[in-house]
């Protein structure tokens, strides 16, 4: 399973999200390949899941990947719930 954490530039915001997603996945006992990148290259990497903010999710409409929205990147409970509800 490949998960891509996406932000505008692929520098700071998506790295924070990636580290918190990795922490939550460890807690859930789920193993996945997690990477972070910018919004313009995300679709071409064809991940199974894209985790991003509501703003960028709109930009990613039409991608084949399942898009998971997180609003508060520091809220581990929100990230956990979002992943549990969407990963299959």
């Amino acid at each position: 399973m490949k998960i891509l954490c996406v932000c505008g530039l692929g520098q700071g915001t998506s790295l924070i999200l990636r580290m918190n997603v990795e922490t939550v996945l460890r807690e859930l006992g789920i193993s996945a390949d997690v990477e972070n990148t910018d919004v313009s290259t995300a679709s071409s990497m064809a991940p199974d899941y894209i985790v991003t903010s509501n703003e960028l999710a709109q930009t990613l409409e039409g991608t084949a990947s399942k898009v998971i929205i997180v609003n508060n990147y520091f809220d581990m409970n929100e990230i956990k719930t979002a992943l549990q509800n969407n990963l299959s």
Partner: peptide
């Protein structure tokens, strides 16, 4: 301006 306020990453 290009990518919007996605970097408002928590309240």
């Amino acid at each position: 301006k290009t990518n919007g306020p996605y970097f408002v990453l928590a309240p």
